[in-house]
Amino acid sequence: MIHRIPIGFFIAIMGSVFLLLASCSNNTLRGHGVYMLIDTSGTYTDELVKAQQIINVALSKLYPGDSFAVARIDTGSFSEKDIVAKVSFDDRPSTANRQKRLFKEKIDEFVKTVQPAKYTDITGGILQATEYLNEKNPGRKTILIFSDLKEELDKGYNRDIDLKLKGFSVVAVNVTKLRSDNYNPKEYLDRLDSWQTRVTSGGGKWSVTNDMDQLEKIFMN
């Protein structure tokens, strides 16, 4: 007797093998857009080494197909000119690795040559970030704000605008305390509350982290 394979049985076996092996693959959703704003005002430029570390962490946690941009916060941040470096990682892992190295070089160069800004236009930076990320339209959108969150606007700049942050995660990183905060901690807390209110009322998710490990989780989630 010859053991004929019924077609259904054959398909079932092949299908099972397919599903079994497919289940081994990592099915995390690709396409993560990250926009990082770096405060370059006054004495905060001293913190740029930390920003460099955060950028390196971000680069190591991003995958092919993800987008990443780093922009400075200065007097008027709602401008493409403030984007220090931006990249959309190629589909091929080897090319993506090359892009990461080039990106790091650009950031290193920026940190060496950056000049302190007189004012801090955080809102403008966030607006620029939303515009950039909406244009890229990734699966997840994250805005990192590396700043003390103290906004100082030059005369003539109107930033009394409602933020549209639906689908965005806004993470404030390394929110340092100012000297005045030490005299009156309420100022610091009010500053955080005010930003949280602005972000959540715009439909976004707000979080603050000063811990690198927590930051890694943001990229992994």
Binding site: R30, G65, D91, R92
Partner: peptide
């Protein structure tokens, strides 16, 4: 294989 067919394209939820 990602180098050949790309690491980001998906078919039916799978890479």
């Amino acid at each position: 294989m990602a180098e050949m067919v790309g690491g980001n394209s998906m078919i039916g939820g799978y890479r």
